Amino acid sequence: MDVITAPVFGASDKPIRMLAIWRDVTEARKARDEAEAARHEAERLAERLSAVLESTMDSVLVVDRSWRISYFNIKAMRLLQPASQARNENRTSSRPREGRAGAVLSAADKPRN
């Protein structure tokens, strides 16, 4: 229950009554609690998925319907980083093997129907 109270003033600006409004908020609280639980579950699952995608040995790149990158894991970042940055980090494993990156990039350049 939610209770709202307020004084009712008379002509002499003195309170003459008390107004009380009672509302049953059981359903609203239940809906809010269910939405909060669903949000926590979605966050937990998103963290779990992120952990899986980050721990895989593969490069993972997710694009939306407009072919914009919406997610990439650390392996994909290393694969797609500029060669000058890779040289500065002294990593030879960050270079893409011949044909692999070209296939990803050429597929990303193609418009979807």
Rank of each mutant, 00 (worst) to 15 (best):
Arg68Ile: 05
Arg97Tyr: 13
Ala46Trp: 09
Phe72Gln: 12
Asn90Lys: 14
Ile4Lys: 08
Glu41Gly: 01
Arg78His: 14
Ala38Arg: 13
Ile21Gln: 03
Arg32Leu: 06
Met77Gln: 15
Thr26Trp: 03
Lys14His: 09
Arg32Asp: 02
Lys75Thr: 13
Leu79Lys: 00
Arg23Thr: 06
Asn90Met: 11
Ala38Lys: 14
Lys30Cys: 04
Ala35Ile: 12
Leu49Met: 12
Val25Arg: 02
Val25Gly: 00
Thr26Phe: 05
Leu105Asn: 10
Ile74Ser: 15
Trp67Gln: 12
Pro82Trp: 12
Leu80Val: 02
Gln85Trp: 13
Val62Met: 03
Glu89Gln: 14
Ser70Met: 13
Trp67Leu: 09
Asn73Ala: 02
Ala31Leu: 13
Pro7Cys: 08
Ile74Cys: 03
Glu27Ala: 11
His40Glu: 06
Ala51Glu: 04
Arg97Pro: 12
Ser12Met: 14
Ser84Gln: 15
Ala108Asn: 04
Asp109Pro: 00
Leu80Ile: 03
Met18Lys: 03
Ala11Phe: 11
Ala103Arg: 12
Leu61Met: 13
Met18Val: 13
Ile4Arg: 09
Ala86Ile: 10
Arg112Tyr: 04
Asp109Gln: 11
Asp64Leu: 13
Trp22Ala: 03
Arg29Lys: 15
Ala37Arg: 10
Val3Trp: 03
Glu41Val: 01
Arg112Asp: 06
Ala107His: 08
Ser93Gln: 07
Ile21Leu: 09
Ala86Leu: 11
Ala42Glu: 12
Val52Gly: 00
Arg97Ala: 10
Glu27Thr: 05
Leu79Cys: 05
Val52Ile: 15
Arg39Ala: 08
Ala38His: 11
Gly99Pro: 05
Asn88Leu: 14
Arg48Tyr: 07
Glu98Ile: 15
Ala38Thr: 12
Leu79Ala: 01
Ala42Cys: 10
Ala37Ser: 09
Arg100Ile: 15
Asp33Val: 01
Ala46Cys: 05
Ala83Arg: 12
Pro82Tyr: 05
Glu36Trp: 02
Leu61Glu: 01
Lys75Gly: 04
Met77Ile: 07
Asn88Cys: 08
Pro7Phe: 05
Glu27His: 10
Ala28Ile: 06
Ala83Lys: 09
Asp24Phe: 09
Val63Trp: 02
Leu79Thr: 05
Ser84Thr: 15
Ala28Thr: 08
Lys110Met: 11
Ala86Cys: 06
Leu49His: 07
Asp33Ala: 00
Lys14Gln: 13
Ala11Gly: 05
Arg68Lys: 10
Arg68Trp: 12
Val104Tyr: 01
Phe9Ala: 00
Trp67Asp: 12
Met57Thr: 11
Ser66Gln: 15
Ser94Tyr: 06
Leu49Thr: 01
Ala86Gly: 08
Arg100Asp: 11
Glu27Ser: 07
Ser12Trp: 08
Ser66Val: 04
Ala108Thr: 04
Ala37Gln: 09
Ala35Arg: 03
Lys75His: 14
Glu98Thr: 15
Lys30His: 08
Pro96Lys: 05
Pro15Arg: 08
Glu89Met: 12
Asp13Trp: 08
Val25Cys: 00
Asn113Pro: 04
Arg91Ser: 15
Pro15Cys: 14
Val63Pro: 00
Arg97Trp: 10
Ala37Val: 01
Glu47Lys: 05
Ala35Asn: 05
Met18Arg: 02
Ala38Ile: 08
Arg29Cys: 09
Ala28Arg: 04
Glu34Asn: 02
Pro96Leu: 04
Ala86Trp: 01
Ala35Leu: 09
Glu34Val: 02
Arg87Trp: 13
Arg68Gly: 04
Ala46Asp: 11
Ser66Asp: 14
Val62Gly: 01
Lys14Gly: 10
Leu19Ile: 09
